[in-house]
Every structure is written in C-alpha cells, then in structure tokens.
C-alpha cells in the first residue's frame, strides 16, 4: 500500500526529469531543429564541439569558475564563521545580514550590480570615472567579464557558506574547546587541530556541491553578459541554452548538456556517497 504514497512524487519526477534526460542523451546523437524529424548523425555533434573554439572557452570558464568558488568563498565563509564564534554577541544579527543576498532573486541582484555598480553611466563605476579614477566596467572587457560576473555570484553566495560553517562550528562539543583552553592552547591551534577537523565533513560536502553548482551556473552569466563580449564569459549552460533556443541546434545543445552532466556525475557520485553515511543509522 505504501508504494502508492510514492506515486505522485515519482511520477512527476520521471515525466519532467528522467524521461527528458534520457531523450537529451539520445538527442546528442541527432541533428534536430526542434520542429522537423531528427536525423541520426552519430558522434558529429561531439566532433563539432571538439573543434568549436567557443565550446573550449566555455569549458575553461567553467573550470576557472570552479577553481574560484572552491577557494575564495569557502575561505571567506570559514573566516567569518570563525570570527562569529569568537564574537558570540551579535552573531545572529551578522548571520542574518550575510544571508540576505541569498533570498533575493538572481535576476534582480544581477541588474542592481549591472546598473548601480558596474555601469559607466548610472553606476558607482561611472561616478569614479568622472572623478578621474581609471576604473573600467569589467563586464565590457573580454579579459575581465567572467571575473566581473563571478564577483556578483561570490558576493551573493559566501554568506550562505558562512551560515552553514557557523552552524557546524557550534556543534563542536564545548568540552573539547574548554579542555584545550585550560591547557593554554592558542586560538589558532584550536582552530587548526580541533575546529577545522571537527567540521571537515561539512567543508567537504560544500566543496562537492560547489563543483556541481559551478557547472550549472546560468542566471548571472545570461543576464549580465549573455556570455559576451565575444563569447569571453560563455559557460557551458549558456552555450547550451543559446544553441537550443537561438540557433535551433538542439542536438548540439544536448551534446553540451551531456558534457555538463559528465562533470556533474563525478561530483554527484561523491555527493551521494557523502550523504549515504547518514542513512546507515
């Protein structure tokens, strides 16, 4: 009888996610414009990607993105969480503010940064330029566009990590810390040898999630630069989206989606393994 309880969730999930996912993998081996009958072309979509300069730029950008997000926000989150642990008083207030950008729509945050900060006309950037500072709009330069987008996502994201790390740090048994304090161990040593090892599972999990999410990044890129200028900030997800809906090359889009999923798959395996420990209670 209890099987029936699962039907709604699984039915919706299979129809919306599983079947289309299988179709996407199949479509990667077809040429299709979304309307006419798909034509089987074997590995041609993948061969075309292999010799496509934009594909390699996008893949490189995703890897750079992963590198940035595996280091900077995790360091910032850990640092702030540790400082909150030291401060104690007011930590809830700081936490809530750091978390605030996470609850605002990405489309809105992107426009605020674009218009109020980066824009050489209406933004803080333009004001600095008029005052004589040699600042640039990072989104308009091929060499800085990706970093300009990453900055917005970093700003929006690090507070979430801080809150998670702070929650984990507070779970560390007080006796361990107290004992170390009584022994006269310095704060940095406590951090290095007690606190960080204690929350290491949380840090690992966040790193796995970072890898997964880094290959899914879409909103900020799509809204801030559309992958430009000159495809310099293209990532795999925007490349796939543009291929499918602007160029009507659905087969190529499917091939890119398969590549994204391959990177995700490895991280997902780690993710499920990390989560699986929880189910052995």
């Amino acid at each position: 009888m209890y099987r029936l309880y699962l039907v709604p969730t699984l039915l919706i999930n299979v129809v919306i996610i599983f079947i289309p996912a299988v179709l996407t993998i199949a479509l990667a081996f077809f040429r299709w414009d979304g309307i006419t009958t798909p034509v089987f072309i074997g590995l041609q979509n993948f061969q075309a990607l292999w010799s496509d300069r934009v594909f390699w730029t996008a893949l490189t950008n995703n890897l750079i993105w992963t590198g940035i997000f595996l280091t900077i926000p995790i360091f910032m989150g850990l640092l702030a969480a540790t400082l909150l642990l030291i401060a104690r008083r007011g930590s809830m207030f700081f936490q809530v503010i750091y978390f605030l950008p996470m609850i605002i729509a990405t489309a809105i945050l992107a426009r605020v940064w674009q218009g109020m900060i980066y824009s050489p006309v209406s933004g803080v950037n333009g004001m600095l330029q008029r005052m004589g500072f040699p600042t640039i709009d990072p989104l308009s330069q091929p060499s800085t566009a990706l970093l300009g987008i990453a900055t917005v996502d970093l700003w929006h994201w690090w507070g979430f990590l801080c809150v998670i790390f702070f929650a984990a740090l507070r779970q560390v048994p007080q006796e361990q810390i107290e004992f170390a304090r009584l022994e006269g161990v310095s704060f940095w040593k406590i951090l290095r040898y007690v606190l960080i090892p204690a929350i290491w599972p949380t840090i690992t999990l966040m790193m796995i999630m970072t890898v997964i999410w880094s290959f899914l990044v879409f909103d900020f890129v799509y809204i801030l630069t559309q992958g430009g200028p000159a495809f310099s900030s293209e990532v795999l997800s925007t490349l796939a989206y543009r291929s499918a809906f602007y160029d009507l090359a659905v087969g190529k889009a499917a091939a890119v989606a398969v590549v994204i999923s391959l990177f995700g798959l490895v991280a997902t395996a780690f993710y499920i393994r990390a989560q699986a420990k929880e189910f052995h209670q």
Binding site: I16, I17, F18, I19, P20, A21, L23, T24, L27, G34, F215, L216, F218, L236, S237, A240, Y241, A244, V250, A253, A254, V256, A257, V258, I260, S261, G264
Partner: peptide
C-alpha cells in the same frame, strides 16, 4: 543540471 532535461 536543468539543461539535461530542459530541451526535450
């Protein structure tokens, strides 16, 4: 990834 099921 959403792109894995978005197009079909």
């Amino acid at each position: 990834p959403i792109q894995l099921f978005l197009f079909p």
